[in-house]
Design a protein around this nucleic acid. Sequence first.
RNA 1: GGCCCCAUCGUCUAGUGGUCAAGGACACCUGGUUCUCAGCCAGGAGAUCGGGGGUUCGAAUCCCCCUGGGGCUACCA
Length: 487
Amino acid sequence: MKTVRVRFAPSPTGSPHIGNIRTALFTWLFARRHGGVFILRIEDTDRARYVEGSVQEIMLSLRWLGLDWDEGPIFQSERLPLYRQVAEQLVQSGHAYRCYCTPERLEELRRQQEAAKQPTGYDRRCRYLSEQERAELEASGTPCVIRFAMPLEGTTVFQDAIRGELTFENALLDDFVMLKSDGFPTYHLASVTDDHTMSITHVIRGEEWISSTPRHVQMYRALGWELPVFAHLPMILGTDRKKLSKRHGSVQFVEYIQQGYLPEAMFNFLALLGWSADEDRDLYTREELVERFDLSGVLDHPAIFDGQKLLWMNGVYIRQKSIEELTQLCLPHLQEAGLLPSKPSAEQVEYAQRVIALEQERIKLLSEVVPLTEYFFRDTLDYDEKGVRKWFTQPYAPQMLEMLTVRYSRLEPFDLPNIEASTRAVAEELGVTAAQVIHPTRVAVSGRTVGPGLFEMIEVLGRERVLIRLRAAQHMVHRTQQAAATE
RNA sequence: GGCCCCAUCGUCUAGUGGUCAAGGACACCUGGUUCUCAGCCAGGAGAUCGGGGGUUCGAAUCCCCCUGGGGCUACCA
């Protein structure tokens, strides 16, 4: 059996989105599953739509996901002579012809067809030019394109690895442009030519290409080239069931990277969007996915992209991380937020690690580490309003804070068991439940009503910070109770 | 408008004629663990398989029609 050779062939017309990358992922998975070759090809044949930097974003996204390519990136813009030669060959063999129609005429033609509710499409005027007309047009230097001469009747049938046999009526397919007047090929010419010259065995691409495939099939035949296997992947739709677009919030793939999704979570999630092994499970390692992936498991209906499950999965993978690795992953976010300097000391990293360890099971997105742990790094706290109202108004609060201050000052060592024991002792002395001490104390040392266990939090904060915060809380309690009394 | 593709819980999906009065996961709800949240554990609700006709002893699974959604219909990919 032939070596599998597949390609991911994006056009650099903007930042890649989830759908683009999912196509890359499936293609890569297929290549690795079959010990094949994965090629990156940049389809930069549209000079007008070219967006600077998108090639970098594509490669960055691929690398981040671990989709390594074996050949490329190959730029179609550097292979122009090849496409022209193929187009010329087709003209010579009578499968293509030069068309001198102006864009204006084409537009007018389309307008008329639409008005008459006729199918739109080129009317093949230049296909039937006489030798003399052609020579005159050529001599006058009129710009021209090269169009493919589609068969006028019959059907084009091909097998799609995912959808089975697909049939198209040739009469309904017009003579599409292969080579533009600027000398650049259109997608059809470039991709067919490259897929053949690069010995691509399986053309894996989005479903939006299905209707172009009969054209490609006809080109392969006209050229006498062997057909690859076609596999059209289902699309990914937004929550409004519409094609993914700017309106759907962060659809740009790089934004997911920035927000702190883990590559392993994204990989896992994307693999299950439009493909499924026949198993009741959702969590797979990259290796397990490579072992199982096949085109036969690819679904033939579109999937709606809904980030909830991705977020959950990300949390799962975050919880699986070693604390050292998670810390390294979180550091950039903490630095960007100004909670840590750009070159943190060993002590600062060590502290951050202990903080992150306390929040690991709550973090679903790396960037969440900032709001979740802020109070560990800042000197002044933002007190939760509800928490203050509920706990700082308790009559025993002033005395409680004083007692805690005294006891915490004397603890030796200042560690978890001692902190817990002394805190519970305070509750007992005050004649209140442990919870009645724990909750106001959490507000006092963190400003929050939710967070890690109080004793762990206090231990990590350290005696010095805790005492300062208890002092600040005493003032806060005083003010709060004063205000309540005057009302 | 024309051509093409598609249609199972809100979402991702299992299911290829009988074992399905449809299974799993996310989200949601309840209970347990507990100092809160999260996590974890247990349970619950949630699809008459888009609708209607067939075929068959029997259909989510096969066929037809309708409806709905999507794609293409460029000298864009």
